[in-house]
Amino acid sequence: MAKEKQEKSNEKPDLDKVVEESRRDFIRRLSIAGAVSVTGAAALYSGHSFEKAKHSKGMVRVLTEDNRLVEIPADQIKDLKPDIKALKARGKEGLQGKRWVMVIDLSRCRNARKCVEACQSAHHLRPYEYHINTLVMKESVNTPEYFMPKPCQHCDNPPCVSVCPVDATYKRQDGIVLIDNERCIGCRFCMAACPYSARMFHWQEPSQAENDKEKVYDVELNVPQKKGTISKCLFSADRIREGLLPYCVSACPNGVFYFGDENEDAVTNGTTKETVMLSELLQKNAGYRLQVELGTNPRVYYLPPKNRLFEFERGPEKEYREETI
């Protein structure tokens, strides 16, 4: 996740550097500037690299789908909304060569719940609708309590995906389990099958349904959320496509989360932005995963809550009230 810093320096785009920029950065720019040509929508996901340079005459260079560099008048550029098919296709594919992985250091979690809030605001959820939830855990009478943030475990052998009757939830090659709420029929078999209770269902109209009406559905963000369908943690697939850390990871004030690529054997801490070796981190800290005996092979690792950096303070119990249905 070293991209994070590079990202920041790019805020004022320097046209000469455009060429050198990675495809991912380009796509981000593309969506911001809206400089999408007729063929742009296809290029958005097809993975072709792409150059552009503004000429003094108001011409724009555009790389077409079949890899030809062409020039078109700038005033003929039409802004295209990223079309849903393209978003879906890239959402299916995932980021090539990556195997996303998360490490959660339980010795640092003090239940600030910033991860929960950031996630809920990004995904337009209510305070009691969770993609990630921080639980109070206690293994047995004599062992201490500790806080445990629990996102979707993005299992490599996901029971939820096996049982889905319509391929609405699926496993991507980069390890992420996604949910397509335009496909989901709302049978909730996946909820029944998930041993981590990681999934939520829209029992009522989603909180921001009215505002999101016009939005094009992005399967990597799962917004707009839809009534009568499943939603769940997506490892912030939309953010990592832009080279950023997931919402929860960046929001944590206490350095609980690491996120990265298993293939690179590197994970970056969301708070300190420090990048460390995954294998070393797990080895030194006796990393483990939840309910391995079920054979689900989660992609989320936990570091045990030993030598706690913070005292365990339960704090006042918050009461959650269901919005009237």
């Binding site: 096996s162 889905c164 029929i185 709302g186 909730r188 009534k227 009568g228």
Partner: peptide, 18 residues
């Protein structure tokens, strides 16, 4: 079903594994 309108999806997109 949460989305009974999508019942035909079972036939259009049915997965034999389920």
């Amino acid at each position: 079903m949460g989305r009974p309108d999508r019942f035909p999806f079972l036939f259009r997109f049915g997965r034999i594994q389920s």
